[in-house]
Write a protein that binds this DNA or RNA. Structure first.
Lengths: 330, 330
DNA sequence: GTGAAAGCGCTAACAG
DNA sequence: CTGTTAGCGCTTTCAC
């Protein structure tokens, strides 16, 4: 591997000037610049990024924390982030925490050891007080998740409002026995809490009460949805509508309903969350809340890059994007 | 940020010994080891990875090239690879080439500039002759894709055989007018070529000929599938079966069929590829070829890590995993 | 404009 | 077992 020294030797020009050429420094004689470039080409020289990092301590790399990439919500988010990052010359390190606090902390060490310039949280596992100390090592931005324990930048939708809208839709359709699914309990985040608040709020304002039996915890996959449906089938007092919290869960419920006596939407009305591709292709078509996934990912990454480019130590910012209620058949 | 020097000073022990402690070197006095560890804790010391890289030149990072992470086939693959990589202490850089040769080459530069220890190709855009030179900078492994221009390690299924199986199934069901979809044309890969060969081979051995009108090129998304269906609807001589090459395309065809006069499977039989989750939840259930995505990803990454761990400069290996034909309703 | 020289933080001989 | 020392490849003052 040729080094800057070899280029200097071959071109007969000092290392410092070669370095200037590499970094597009303005004050370099045009003729020498050419000679250096030619030497680099002849040798197949590429600057060693570890050395550059050691000197300058910027990595042009960003860590993106998600719970799991197979979840289409996250892969959509990552895809959008990647587009913006690549455009700006940044690379992404994929951090699948898989719901583990420990793994999340390990990934945060990337910031500490200067392997990434910043961290984007699209999912969050630890309590904010455990994450906060890492802010000393570099910037962080929240996407989708949020917490009121800090004013760290965050890009998200209003989960409280979106849930009210969905539940109100059920009520307007004449449903009164409404079930509710929530995902994994996460300490550091308000997302689940807000949805639950919205749910209760919508019920209350229509003088409906909530049957605790119809609360399903820790459901997030298609398989989980199938299991929810099996449980409902066994109930004597069954709900007539269900807020699923994700299109995957809704899909599982609908798929299971096909081999069950409970029919969707006749006996059970279903609302998903996200408006994934699957919502539009299953039968019956899934009514759902569309999140602007692309915008969410893009704006988050733009903000992170803005912070990094301008070396801003802290820039609070909260962006609440709007959702769209998509009515289909369920 | 504290450095190794600070730790040495605080503990009153030399830098080399501190370094030995960091690297779990065997011959260090237990008492000193403790003193060093305490000092590291007190200072909140973490080794600067850029410096470590510059010295040792290993990054514990692997680049994974895919065309796009939103494609569930790729996110499944990446998920499996990530599990193995994390286990072995490696990180993954996500490289969405989005079908661009240029971007692929840019990602390969990560190997040249020593930002990654190796590269896994799960999709491939450039001709092998353009990729080959990069082998000088580090190991590469192929997953799913393959080429006969080299004996680089590759983990894949037999696309030729799988396609024959699918087409033979159609023929046994009495279908004779069989259409064929292929994805993006990629120069460096045999995958598409082998499927096409398998298709022709199956037809020929049953004395069927192939109508060129029923060949669809560059189809890979749900949307593409819908368009294929629209085209079929306009034909006067319509196929009665279609090999789609992906569950996404098949899903698009089935969704579009619901608002069309052509019914699946009555008028048109459909076979997907991969056996994604979606195949089991749409109606009618999609008949498809199951690829062992997890195994594919895991074995590929295991092999890469094996090469890296043992500093093997070259280790050819071809693993052909078996597929499973899943018969549902279409 | 350009070169010499001083490190960035770490590891790995090499003596002791 | 442990400390001294010499760089890894690059950038950046600071003189000229």
């Amino acid at each position: 591997m040729p080094t800057i020294k070899d280029v200097a030797k071959l071109s007969g020009i000092s290392r410092s000037t070669v370095s200037r050429v590499i970094n597009n420094h303005p004050y370099v004689n045009e003729e020498k610049r050419m000679r250096v470039k030619q030497a680099m080409l002849d040798l197949g020289y590429v600057p060693n990024s570890s050395a550059q990092r050691l000197r300058g301590s910027k990595t042009k790399t960003i860590a993106v924390l998600i719970s799991r990439i197979v979840n289409p919500f996250f892969s959509g988010l990552v895809d959008a982030m990647d587009t913006v990052a690549t455009e700006a010359g940044y690379k992404l390190i994929l951090c699948n925490t898989r719901g583990s606090k420990e793994r999340e902390l390990n990934y945060l060490d990337l910031l500490k050891t200067k392997q990434v310039d910043g961290v984007v949280f699209a999912s969050i596992e630890n309590d904010w007080s455990d994450i906060k100390p890492y802010l000393a090592y570099g910037p962080m931005v929240l996407c989708n998740e949020y917490t009121d324990q800090t004013d760290i930048p965050s890009f998200r939708i209003n989960h409280f409002q979106a849930t009210i809208e969905a539940v109100t839709h059920f009520i307007k359709e004449g449903r009164t026995k409404i079930a509710f699914c929530r995902g994994d309990e996460t300490i550091g985040s308000n997302l689940g809490v807000d949805r639950e608040k919205g749910f209760i709020s919508a019920l209350t304002s229509h003088h409906l009460s909530f049957n605790k039996q119809w609360l399903f915890r820790n459901v997030s996959s298609i398989e989980d949805g199938r299991n929810v449906m099996k449980k409902i089938e066994r109930m004597t007092d069954r709900p007539d509508a269900i807020f699923t919290g994700s299109d995957e869960v809704a899909t599982g419920i609908i798929a299971e309903a096909k081999i069950s006596s409970i029919k969707v939407p006749k006996h059970l009305s279903v609302i998903g969350f996200d408006d994934q591709q699957i919502a539009g292709v299953i039968t019956p078509g899934l009514t759902t809340i569309r999140q602007p996934i692309n915008k969410l990912g893009e704006q988050t990454m733009q903000h992170m890059i803005h912070i990094l480019t301008n070396r801003i130590s802290f820039l609070g910012h909260t962006e609440v994007l709007t959702t769209e209620f998509i009515v289909r058949d369920t």
